[in-house]
Nucleic acid binder design. Structure first.
Lengths: 326, 326
DNA sequence: CTAGGTGCAAATAATTTGCAGAGGC
DNA sequence: GCCTCTGCAAATTATTTGCACCTAG
């Protein structure tokens, strides 16, 4: 799947003042075809198989070039030499490193990333890159069982997890709007909530379809371990909102306000995290979802203003009462 | 402060089947006198100053020995060579690494550690050690101002932060018990809460005294940046408990139950984290505090059982009502 | 034609090792 | 006396570089 066909437009990436070279192209192609973390030496061996006239120095020079061009990332597992992984459509991530079999496993945790950012900020430190490595023994080495063979790229797993988060949020949102529509008294407000519930339902269908389509790319995709760890996911917002609707006697304006809070949080959340990821389907999913939430947010705000105005006119006396109780 | 006088009993640490050697002793002593992260070469230079007949190979061999013996930790800042830091009374920690001046700053985040543990568990990975490194530009390099010179060891900062957390928890606890004593009807329960409030007040005094004493060791200790990042600190528990007392009409049994929940959470929290830190004053503070909370917990549980029994006797009919409403 | 790109071999840099002699128990 | 420690120099490993030649634009 993610073979040479997925190679980005190298010409675009070429730093200014560099020439095309068939040898470099070959090295880059061989490199991008590999999965996992190659040492310079691994790559030399692979290259020699295709063309033994390419020297070690050229491979080193090309590797350096790829890192500068952003095609590759240099990673250090503390082995006394560097390894390289390609970064094209391969989200930045952290590593679990097995000291027994030397395999390494990738994961991403937005929760950890957020904490790392906080620490950096508290120390007045401008963070450019962070490394999180967990050393220990992997499940395969502990239990003797072999791990589910590779086959799913991190890109795919990331998309899967992004979709799962979006779907969970959508489900909470649907529940929230369904409940809101039920308790709203104003017929116009009721209709809006109904509409939003319908939209969430529709969008949920779209997302689920997309999820199914993703699963087709790898029959075992669903059972593979989590790649993106993300506790702070926005679905909790809507869940809390729905809870709030259930508890107190919430009036129409209040319901709209809660909805606005949820959508705003959700929008911010998906936008912020979407932006921070590298180009990938997962990023795409987050950003599309952010846009969706933004539209809902606008709709709710418009409605809120309208309802406020309408309530004010027929009963201007209410204003004082409301102001006093606020 | 943390000079050769602080050196642990090296004889205890000597692996079986090794001999004492004056050269090794010298190397270890010089190493332990240093602050910060030394490269092998730095140490060779330092050693040569004291005795130029000690060879580079011996320094390397001793460094390896120290790592095995647990006196030193080998750290990799991706420079293509390793650095070493001593681990004696120096808590495990993470690093902020400035790419401009190559200085490195230490911090510890129990929040990050907890997330790392979760990820490892979710992947069936047995974590032995984890590395968190934030690369970027430090405040000094960005602003041009020099950083507050070193002088406080991580050990000291850790103790400071552990005390701050304990004090904050104690304050919340005090507020909780004061409020609980006020709203409790049963005179015996009232007295217990009063007693606990008094104890918290007293303990708070002790902790604050200890904190002041700690500050004496370094006049600028208070203004130094946070070392231990710890959002999940237990003081939130008591704060939430106090909130709960404020809101609903809480009866005596319920107040005791809330107290039990707070103390249990607090106890677990300090015990769990205290255990996970290396030997240090910070660890000490956490464990002592855990023990304190355990005693309060027992007291509350005893009282809860008594009150339950007493309430049952005069009005046995209540049991059914309580059971039905549960 | 000229600035990069490449091969080869030599240089670096950090660290390890073989071996013979020194020293602790 | 035996076994470990140590110094020295050579070896190893990963990576970089100088230089002469090659090739794309």
């Amino acid at each position: 799947m993610a073979t040479a066909s997925a190679i980005p437009d190298l010409d675009r990436l070429r730093p200014a003042g560099t020439k095309r070279s068939s040898k470099r192209d070959l090295i880059v192609n061989v490199f991008l075809r590999q999965e996992g973390h190659l040492s310079a030496d691994d790559l030399v061996a692979l290259i020699k198989r295709e063309d033994h006239r390419i020297s070690r120095a050229t491979v080193y020079r090309t590797l350096q070039w790829m890192v500068e061009a952003g095609i590759a990332r240099k990673v250090d597992f503390g082995e006394g030499r560097f390894r390289f992984e390609h970064s094209y459509r391969h989200p930045r991530h952290f590593h679990l490193i097995c000291k027994t079999c030397n395999r390494s496993y990738e994961f991403l945790s937005s929760d950890i990333e957020a904490l790392v950012e906080e620490v950096a900020a508290a120390r007045g430190f401008q963070a450019r890159q962070s490394v999180v490595q967990i050393y220990g023994t992997c499940e395969a080495c502990r239990t003797g069982r072999e791990p589910a063979e590779e086959g799913a790229t991190s890109e795919l797993l990331f998309a899967r997890d992004a979709l799962r988060i979006a779907i969970a949020t959508e489900r909470s949102g649907l529940e929230f709007y369904t409940r809101a529509a039920r308790i709203t008294k104003d017929p116009r407000g009721k209709r809006i909530f109904h509409e939003l519930a319908e939209e969430e339902k529709h969008h949920l269908g779209t997302l689920e379809g997309r999820y199914r389509k993703l699963l087709e790319q790898d029959p075992q995709l669903e059972s593979r371990p989590t790649f993106l760890f993300f506790k702070g996911a926005a679905n909790g917002l809507f869940a809390a909102g729905a809870d709030q609707l259930r508890r107190d006697g919430v009036d129409d304006l209040e319901a709209l306000r809660i909805g606005i809070r949820c959508e705003r949080g959700s929008h911010r959340f998906f936008k912020r995290y979407g932006e921070r990821f590298e180009d990938s389907e997962g990023k795409q999913i987050f950003l599309e979802f952010a846009e969706e939430e933004r539209q809902h947010l606008e709709m709710l705000i418009r409605e809120y203003r309208l309802l406020q105005k309408r309530q004010r006119k027929p009963a201007p006396a209410r204003r004082r009462a409301a102001a006093r109780s606020a």
